[in-house]
Amino acid sequence: MRWQRLLFSIVAICFVIPLAVLAYLSLSANWYFPALWSHSFTLEHWHWLLRDGSPLTFSLLLSVGLSLSVSVAATALGFFVSRLLAYHTTSTYWLLGAYFPYVIAPVVFAVMLNVYLLRLGLTGTLGGVMLAQLLITFPYAILFFYGFWNERIRNLEHLVRTLGGNFRTVVTQAILPSARGLIAVCFFQTYLISWFEYGLTQFIGVGKVPTLTIMVFRYISEANPHLAALAGLLLILPPLGLLVVNRRFLLHKAWSI
């Protein structure tokens, strides 16, 4: 048991390293080779973040708003569309329709989709990025919820009907109480897919929708590792919060790898 603990401790250290590196970088200044820790430290980057009108604060709010809208829409649509599919089609082959956009790299999908968004005047706009992200999170939500609509839920719906309930009663009394946990998980997972998304957001947004991931890459390109680390930390903090609240929320498929 002791060597198991030792081995896992090494793995755990590897897990903590990214956070440590980001935190260290965000507090460092003039960190040049070959210095490991003999250099200056500063709170300047954090002060800059908290200052009025900081672009990172704007990106943070933009990302939160974008991911919230995408995840609410994808979860709500996916929930009811998966119900329709599960109840009214007999063949699971229809599900392939949801698998296709799910497996193609988002950025390649974006490349081919862009012409339509361009014609609709949505390229380079928040609405365009939102729609494009919805097109990848919506199929995910369908696949996520499909298994929920099993025989038991169907029977429960029928029971509420025979007890005199209308569709609203079925939704509020039978479906939502049973699906509450799953809905929360799907909401957070689609939130994270949107939150972590970079390639598609960059391509459809053409840099005009500066979400946090866009800012991370911008700072990397500008060879400003300190601000890139700061933006990276801002990206990690909300999922870390989820880890504390409910770790199940984090088990999304690694979408934007």
Binding site: R161, T162, P177
Partner: peptide, 20 residues
């Protein structure tokens, strides 16, 4: 008539109580 208007209640083998 739809199920909710028939006045016929159907009980399953599973009690299907509302857990909340």
């Amino acid at each position: 008539l739809p199920p909710q208007k028939r006045g016929i209640v159907y009980l399953y083998q599973d009690a299907l109580l509302f857990p909340h």
